[in-house]
């Protein structure tokens, strides 16, 4: 019985070794070809980004978005407002009308800022510059403090239908990051 088991074990070991040898020689004419003449083998590298999801990192900073409106200077002779330099909407403070989108991603991205008026304030329209989708470059090769960014500026036009003694919401901004 002992001999029988030993024989089986020996045969199994031989079978395993022969399979390994065939595996090494697969695709090569000989085992020598597979491992190289000097017993060496090339080390090969391929850049495989397929399993890495792009993780985007984006900063958005916006001003208070508060504007003052003036109809202009009243002209008692014509009973109209003269459209002088004060007429229209002006930002309440510097940069109140700006949205800055900064890209910290290792890929470029496309940003758009759009204004949508509130249903109760259709008398006031807004336009954002630049209006078209804007490509913000990749952050690769840039310092964190100097990451690529794009500044968008909102301008309002029209006139409020009623007096607004306090700052009142007239619309919203949507930043689309594509």
């Amino acid at each position: 019985m002992k001999k029988f088991i030993t024989t089986i074990a020996a045969l199994s070991a031989m079978a395993v070794l022969s399979v390994s040898a065939f595996a090494a020689a697969a695709g090569s004419d000989t085992i020598d070809d597979a491992i190289g003449e000097n017993g060496s083998h090339d080390v090969e590298v391929k850049y495989d980004d397929s399993t890495n999801k792009t993780v985007y990192s984006v900063d958005i900073v916006w001003g208070a978005m508060q504007f003052n409106y003036s109809a202009g200077t009243w002209d008692p002779d014509t009973h109209t407002y003269a459209a002088d330099g004060n007429a229209g909407f002006t930002p309440a403070a510097e940069n109140d009308d700006k949205v800055t989108v900064t890209n910290h991603t290792n890929k470029e991205l496309e940003a758009t800022v759009a204004y949508a008026q509130d249903a109760s304030h259709t008398d006031i329209t807004g336009a954002v510059t630049p209006a078209d989708p804007t490509t913000i470059a990749t952050a690769v090769g840039t310092a964190v403090d100097a990451a690529p960014n794009q500044v968008f500026q909102l301008a309002l036009s029209g006139a409020p239908a009623a007096q607004l003694p306090t700052y009142t919401k007239v619309g919203t901004l949507t930043v689309t990051l594509a």
């Binding site: 985007y56 990192s57 958005i60 900073v61 403070a93 109140d96």
Partner: peptide, 18 residues
């Protein structure tokens, strides 16, 4: 924190699109 203009806002977003 990110510098934020008075009355405005400042956010950072990290996300995957999948």
């Amino acid at each position: 924190k990110l510098e934020q203009p008075e009355g405005g806002g400042a956010v950072s977003l990290t996300y995957s699109r999948e």
